[in-house]
Design a binder for these strands. Structure first.
Lengths: 196, 196
DNA sequence: TCGTGACGTTACAGACCGGTAACACCATAG
DNA sequence: CTATGGTGTTACCGGTCTGTAACGTCACGA
């Protein structure tokens, strides 16, 4: 038991991984259950034995993606232990790298756009995960000695969110190309007015 | 001829108006042709006599929406003739009002998220319209005497784009609530460093 | 050896989708 | 009166979608 080879994980894990990737690339409404199961090397029945519905799969995918993103935050701490300001700059750098490399936006934001029904079960999950994401950035800003930590965190959040959407509209050469300059300028500006 | 009553415009106009509204509220992939024609008080055949395909309808809707947005810019000029800085502040105020009232983001950005196929015919239209939008804001910033006009315009663009997405994820009480404070702060900051 | 549970296969239901064909209607212009 | 063009109606095509039923297979553990 428990061989857990990388190339042949359990069906549930393969489905989750494949669905995350395909939802990210093609959008939630742009990919069907059949396409996911085929790409995951399994079948529809097995998917529905592990997930109640497509909506359930969507939610599990969002949680899994958020979990991966959470791992990145731990890397900030290990690479710059104790230096919160360096971690904030690392956040900016990682964000800029994603902008350049990815071409698609944040999975949660994209899902919120696609799932316009106000009572869709995924919406509360999106809100929950996005708020947790915000709290972490606020805490980082505060620990980095920024006076108006909430305002800087929210501004950086909106800038990144906007940049990730802008990339999808006008590409990487558009306004998002200036993201690092904007973010670094804001950090400098907020550090200047720090209320220690 | 040309009675053009408001309550009973020509079918093509009714379809275009209804489609814009429904695409905006429910998303492009969330609305079918049948639903549009029924809401517009007409039928599918009439729609396909005026539009080549759903993709064509999407594109015409995007252009119509952009045209309406263009009318807003003329209002800036009539309400603050010659005073470009006042027009810039008016832009911020209008943007904030939309954030509070609308709940759904920019139609072009939403469409870019939904239509992930890189060769979708609407994508070049989205890019074209978004670039025109950016050019107008850059020009306004420059005419308002801002030194780094492009950088301010791009920053404001990303902030608004991000705010409109954030509203869909976490609602109007999230980071977008600080939009005015952020935008006004940026304008002040950029005016301070103006290179006349 | 036998049972059990996870997984695969096929087929299907029921709904919706975008798009088209054929035909009926009706106001207006000539 | 008649011709014409815009419109409405019905029915349909082929495809795709989520989700389910029934059955077969296979590994593993008791």
């Amino acid at each position: 038991m428990e061989d857990g080879t990388v190339e042949r994980a359990r069906p549930r894990d393969r489905i989750l991984e494949t669905a995350q990737d395909m939802f990210h690339k093609h959008g939630i409404k742009g990919v069907g259950i059949d396409a996911i199961t085929e790409a995951a090397g399994t079948n529809k029945m097995t998917l529905y034995r592990h997930f109640d519905s497509k909506d359930d799969l969507i939610i599990q995918c969002l949680r899994a993606t958020a979990c991966k993103a959470g791992a990145m935050w731990e890397k900030f701490e290990t690479e710059h232990p104790g230096d919160k300001l360096a971690q904030l700059h690392a956040w900016v750098r990682i964000a800029a790298d994603m902008l350049r490399a990815d071409g698609r936006g944040c999975d949660m934001a994209n899902a919120a756009v696609e799932l316009s029904e106000t009572d869709h079960p995924a919406r509360r999950v999106i809100k929950e995960l996005k708020e947790a994401q915000r709290d972490r950035l606020v805490t980082l800003c505060r620990d980095a000695g920024i006076g108006q930590a909430e305002l800087l965190a929210d501004t950086l959040s909106l800038l990144l969110e906007g940049a990730r959407v802008s990339v999808q509209s006008v590409g990487t050469e558009g306004p998002s190309a200036q993201f690092v300059r904007m973010a670094e300028g804001l950090i400098v500006s907020f550090r200047g007015t720090a209320a220690g």
